[in-house]
């Protein structure tokens, strides 16, 4: 593998991973759907940068490709699609967080501590402890967001950020084969989630329209 294992390279890798985590907290306190989607886009862009940087650190061109795919898919395509869906289907713009922002943030901090504790033993065999802790924290925060945000679009963004955590974990592992394929498989899951929400909502709206028309027709017949 060789690779550029300088302290600076690792610091930058951790900085980028840390930025993904900070943006997860950003997702937790966003009160508007538009802001939520933008925060997710920002997180995906930083994630893409993290993947590409890992590609350079590990001398693995495949990870740079992964970064580009993440940038195109999660950084651009999915946020654009979400904005469009939100505009067309007129979702409620305000996003509620059920137990209030502060308890949720406190729970988030606790989850990050848990992730650090769980990943700590990895250091014994020179495994990438920090990367694993960051990825695990992003996954746990994504799950927290799915629990505390009852609205479907916000839950969806929570699920998407959970998947970002998975990609962060995959690219942070040195020498993991099939990293590109796995990252693509995770993005497929993300795309399917977005498409699923879109199709379900479209159907629900058509059914409303149809029901309204039937009622009108019924009224005309009488």
């Amino acid at each position: 593998m060789g690779g550029h294992h300088g302290a600076f390279s690792l610091d930058v890798a951790h900085l980028l991973g840390g930025a993904v985590l900070v943006l997860s907290f950003g997702l937790l306190y966003q009160r508007r759907l538009g802001g939520l989607i933008n925060a997710y886009a920002a997180q995906s862009c930083v994630l893409a940068a993290a993947a590409a940087w890992q590609g350079w650190v590990q001398s693995a061109p495949a990870l740079v490709v992964t970064g580009l795919i993440v940038l195109g898919g999660a950084g651009v395509a999915i946020p654009v699609a979400l904005h469009r869906i939100a505009g067309r289907l007129q979702f409620d713009r305000a996003v509620v967080t059920q137990p209030g922002i502060f308890p949720v943030m406190a729970a988030g901090v606790a989850l990050v501590l848990l992730a650090v504790l769980l990943a700590a033993p990895a250091a014994a065999q020179a495994l990438p402890r920090e990367d694993l802790a960051l990825a695990l924290a992003v996954v746990l925060l994504g799950q927290l967001m799915m629990i505390v945000r009852p609205a479907a679009p916000a839950q969806l963004v929570g699920f998407l950020s959970l998947l970002s955590g998975l990609i962060l974990g995959i690219v942070g592992v040195p020498g993991m084969r099939l990293a590109v394929e796995l990252a693509v498989a995770v993005l497929v899951l993300a795309g399917a989630a977005v498409a699923g929400v879109y199709l379900l909502r479209i159907r629900a709206r058509f059914e409303e329209v149809d029901a309204g028309r039937l009622e009108r027709l019924g009224g005309a017949a009488q």
């Binding site: 990825a135 996954v139 699920f159 959970l162 998975l166 974990g169 995959i170 993991m176 796995l182 899951l189």
Partner: peptide, 10 residues
């Protein structure tokens, strides 16, 4: 599946 994916990485 997300949990299983993370578990696979670990």
């Amino acid at each position: 599946l997300a949990m299983a994916c993370f578990g696979t990485t670990v």
